[in-house]
Amino acid sequence: MIVELLAQYVMNGLMLGMMYALVAVGFTLFFGVLDVIQFSHGDVLTVGAFTALAAFVGLHTLGLGSRWLDLVVIVLAATLAMALLGMVIARYFIMPLRAAPALNTLLITLMLGTVLREAVRLFYPEGANPKPFPALLPRDAVALGAFNLRLDNVLMLAAGAGVIVGLQFVLSRTRLGLAIRAVAQDEETARTMGINFTAIVLITFAIGSAMAAFAGVMNGLYYNEINFGIGLYLGVVGFSAAIIGGLGSVYGAILGGFLFAGLQTVGAVLLPFASAYKDVFAFAVVIAIMAWRPTGLIREKISERV
């Protein structure tokens, strides 16, 4: 009985960790290329989730749609639309502020996040209320003792892992990845190598924002409900995860995401009668980690010679 319950917790922790990691990677990528924190990143996730929902409603109004077609369409709609939104944010709200103090960028992106969130609340039909999100993945389950391993959870984890592996592949094996990593190390020298800096920044924002949209869809499919505030919470958690991992490190962000989910899970197990405190527990540990290792868990190991 206990084992089954634990398995349930672990599964839930993995799902959450995957979503956090997907969001955290965005923060770390954006910081890499532009040295900024994109505080509206979480709200981009919200808009992505609502775009997916709108696409679903649209398909069914047209009388089209089958489970797999729905899935493909909502994922594509959400990721492509958010890739575009991410590029617009970078191009028109963040890049023009490069000469200004970093605090101005922080303020602009915070306000932009509020605008996105409020726009969903006010302009999406009945956007102020939680909206049911369709359960598009097969719910079949394999019983392992008393623990039901659900196919939809496995599929979501596999898809999330696929996205992360894909990102790693792009970053480490492709010409685009080489350019992103070069810009992250030294913008000016990267430009001197013939890299189109603006294009690389925009592509990076497109990738990071599409990953947030993917996490938003996962969130909807997992809880079968979304609301205009999901991104606010996931944004704060994703940001914390990126910081504990060591901002700028992709591995660190992934590690940070799963670590945070692990802490929440431990919190929920240790405090079964007060699971509402699991976030308090997780954030308290994050604060302790920051006090212990102020620059994050994955530290830059290379001394940078000039």
């Binding site: 010409r175 080489l178 350019a179 990593r181 070069a182 190390q185 030294d186 000016e188 020298t189 990267a190 001197t192 190598m193 013939g194 890299i195 290379i302 940078e304 010679r305 000039v306």
Partner: peptide, 22 residues
């Protein structure tokens, strides 16, 4: 460039590759 400006987190070979980026 002045001060060489190698990419510290790239290997020697990656540094060469990025020189032929175009």
């Amino acid at each position: 460039p002045e001060g060489r400006k190698v990419f510290p987190k790239f290997t020697a070979e990656e540094n060469l590759r990025v020189g032929a980026y175009q």
